[in-house]
Design a protein around this nucleic acid. Structure first.
Lengths: 229, 229
DNA sequence: GCCGCAAAAAGTGCATGCAGTTTTCCGTTT
DNA sequence: AAACGGAAAACTGCATGCACTTTTTGCGGC
């Protein structure tokens, strides 16, 4: 394989996989913004591969919903209108609620210990106002929640939804009071889970997303609000 | 486009789209069964196209979860172990519950009228024991439910889940009493929706899937039980 | 007979080329 | 100056070819 020179960076898997990672990386980090055109030739040149793996990557990203493809025209980073954005938030809230509910019932002792420890540790980040670190913690927290539901398929669905919201949730936590609020909401979820109180955990998680969603609604035009998923 | 001869059948869209439809058709209808290898060359020959569009189609089907791909080896129709199957059923139940709940709140007058009319009409199919026709009705019924939730993203998720279950729900409704049971459960859902009773509708839809799931559990080894989704 | 193992066969991964389509650019007309 | 039209440029869609990997095959050793 790899006839010409190789762009070893990100070394792992096939060229197509690298392209999928690379391109979705550009999208998720915001280097490419919704609506931007994805020209196969340019991408191929940029990563020093032929158009073939780029095409396959775009096809896959299309199936995942990150980009939109139409016959004979360039792929485009998916845009979402307000309606669709709302529908994704609503779906996210439902899914998070389900995960929290199931997690409250199914998490192992280790998992409970782990999510609690992580949550406690994040308190320090709040006080220090370490936004970036808190964002990283936040990602881990929610991932733990999704895994805690012990349902492979739901994990896939929620992860996928999360990925599609990713382009829209850059640069947050900068809103005043956001961190503290987030921590408190996490607290409610964790407490309920530790108590194995499924209903409360589910409602708290639903409300957690709903909070963000409400905030988002007030910033409709410039949808850059929601990191806290 | 299309340099050589053309396989016009299914005429529509690009060659890749045709391949996606064709291959997923083979999977959903059972011509290809879970675990079967999908050889690019053979498929290309069979449909008289080059390997390129076949590869892209397989890539897309992989992203959709219908087939599994690993580097340097043939794509394979996705198998699901018992765990994963259960997780998909559980997810389906949750999603159907959500859809029914939202549909009870959001369906337009026309939508309510339409789903009720369809349901009423299906009564005749029960009496006649028209299994195939009832299966078709059943698909429409559930689709109407999903659309009635008026949430684009949830529609995507549930449709996708449904597609992944498709290979496993061939040839059902043949179980004795299945049709009647299904009809009764639909009835409960419809009634609640017409009353705009969200909680009841949600529970009924959840239970509807749970019923099928239970039936499935008793047939673990040969997972050919669940048409009623 | 069966295990190992090397060579052949089959199959995937990617690059390249060309046909067809869309987009861009520019001169012409109104 | 804006609107139109058409040719050139840019780009997508697919076929084909070759390198590399996996699978199969066939044969000698045990």
């Amino acid at each position: 394989m790899k006839q010409g020179r190789s762009r070893d960076i990100i070394r792992a898997g096939t060229t197509v996989e690298q392209m999928v990672r690379a391109i979705s990386g550009l999208i998720v980090t915001g280097s490419l913004r919704p609506g931007d055109k994805l020209d196969e030739g340019s991408l191929a040149g940029r990563f020093e591969v032929s158009r073939t793996p780029v095409r396959e990557a775009l096809r896959q990203l299309g199936a995942m919903g990150l980009v939109k493809r139409e016959p004979n025209r360039s792929a485009v980073v998916s845009t979402v209108d307000e309606n669709h954005l709302n529908s994704m938030f609503e779906a996210m809230a439902e899914l998070e609620g389900i995960c929290a509910r199931l997690a409250a019932l199914r998490m192992t002792v280790d998992e409970r210990r782990s999510i609690e420890a992580g949550h406690r540790a994040s308190h320090r980040l709040i006080r220090d106002g370490a936004e970036d670190e808190y964002a990283a913690h936040n990602t881990r927290f929610h991932t733990a929640l999704y895994l805690g539901a012990h349902n492979e398929h739901i994990y896939d669905l929620v992860t996928q939804t999360r990925a599609r919201l990713a382009p829209f949730r850059r640069a947050q936590f900068h809103l005043p009071g956001r961190l503290v609020r987030s921590f408190e909401e996490h607290e409610a979820i964790v407490t309920a889970i530790l108590r194995a109180d499924a209903a409360t955990a589910g409602n708290a998680a639903y409300a957690h997303v709903a909070t963000v969603r409400t905030a988002a609604a007030s910033v409709v035009a410039n949808p850059q609000v929601f990191a806290d998923l």
